[in-house]
Amino acid sequence: MKLYFVLIIRRQNYFYFSDMFLTSAIKYIGRYFILLGKVFRRPENMREYVKAFWSDLELLGLNSLGIVSIISLFVGAVVTIQTAFNLNDPLIPNYYVGIATRESIILEFSPTIISLILAGKVGSNIASTMGSMRVSEQIDALDIMGINSASYLILPKIIALIFFNPILIVLSMFLGIWGGYLAATFIGVVSPTDFLVGIQSDFNSFYIVYSLIKTVFFAFLITTISAYYGYYVKGGAVEVGINATKAVVSSSIAVIVANYILTQILLG
């Protein structure tokens, strides 16, 4: 009898918590789409939006060139070294190192891992900037002026990142493979000639298209999710910090899940 009651209570708690989780998940998703509805409206003044676009392009895109270049170059080199050690078999031709490096960089490292890094860098920037604007009433000031604050603050960021992320990812692909070539040349894990033969063998150009399609989706997710957390901050500096962290975590998870879904659709 006692066990029966314990089971009932546990069952009720389970339903209570799962209900709470579902309610808050629906609330979050609903608010996210309401925000998107506000973002995609006709701008009040196109020239001002274009000005904001160029400024966001510099802040979110151009300023990410350094970190993307350094990480791509070194990870490309490491991928080549590790692949060379793992394929150290006389039955496997050496140029396979080049193929494996190319495929790893183009299919996964550049579009996904670099997007995750950008989710950290760009996502926290967007969430904390917009969060600070919210708590210091700057967003209210925009609303009072009759400006659609959601659209003015978020739309230029979405377009800037959708436009610039593919450029960053192509650069990352190039630098990653070049890093692999440098590792081949200076460390000698594989001869540069074998590496060059490898990166040109069995090349499927659709992989580039696949990666760029992913990148566009990731850019959209990173910008909108981070903006969502920044735009709806309530409280002060601590809440801005908490929401910036939530923005990075949520957009990273969204990137990983979207990566799986898009891969299934495009390559499955």
Partner: peptide, 14 residues
């Protein structure tokens, strides 16, 4: 809204 002006407690300057 363009007929309204507002001074916020914390100024809310950009």
């Amino acid at each position: 809204r363009t007929d309204m002006g507002m001074v916020f407690q914390g100024n809310a300057l950009f």
